[in-house]
């Protein structure tokens, strides 16, 4: 019985750990998309893997606006930023979307940021929320 309890506990711990690794990488963000397709940072952080993409899900955009254009910047040694991906349009309620980098190899430990702009030109600031996994 005691042995079974140990197995059971170990199994629970393993599943919980696996779930943490798989799902905890998503981070919630809340940002404002500036008028006239101004750029803004949705989220920034350090890469924990060498995957050349990020994931984006649970997107919610204010007003009647339905989509955001997302791309990735990588931080350089001199603290400047270099764009490493093309724009990818992410729809409210859609996804999870993948934004792949283009012709660049992202490494674990590199500092990156997900940038966004409203897909449509507008006069006003638009609120956006969602979850991004910088991976």
């Amino acid at each position: 019985m005691k042995k079974f309890a140990y197995y059971f506990l170990t199994a629970i711990l393993s599943v919980t750990l696996f779930a943490n690794i798989v799902y905890a990488a998503y981070q919630y963000y809340s940002a404002t998309l500036p008028p006239f397709k101004g750029d803004t940072t949705l989220i920034s952080g350090t890469k924990t893997t060498g995957y050349d993409n990020i994931f984006h899900r649970n997107i919610s955009i204010g007003g009647n606006y339905d989509a955001v254009d997302v791309w990735i910047d990588r931080k350089n040694a001199d603290n400047s930023w270099t764009r490493v991906s093309d724009n990818v349009t992410h729809y409210e309620g859609g996804g999870p979307y993948t934004t792949p980098v283009a012709n660049v190899d992202l490494l674990s430990g590199q500092f990156i940021r997900a940038r966004g702009q409203n897909h449509d030109s507008t006069w006003v600031n638009v609120a956006i929320q969602g979850e991004i996994d910088l991976r």
Partner: peptide, 27 residues
């Protein structure tokens, strides 16, 4: 007209969005 509609959160009443082939405005 367009500015007031955008400001009130009624982007679907801004006329300029009706003239573009591909917009992602709902409603």
């Amino acid at each position: 007209g367009n500015f007031i509609n955008a400001l009130l959160g009624k982007a679907n009443y801004c006329l300029n969005y009706y003239l573009q082939g591909f917009v992602v405005i709902g409603g």
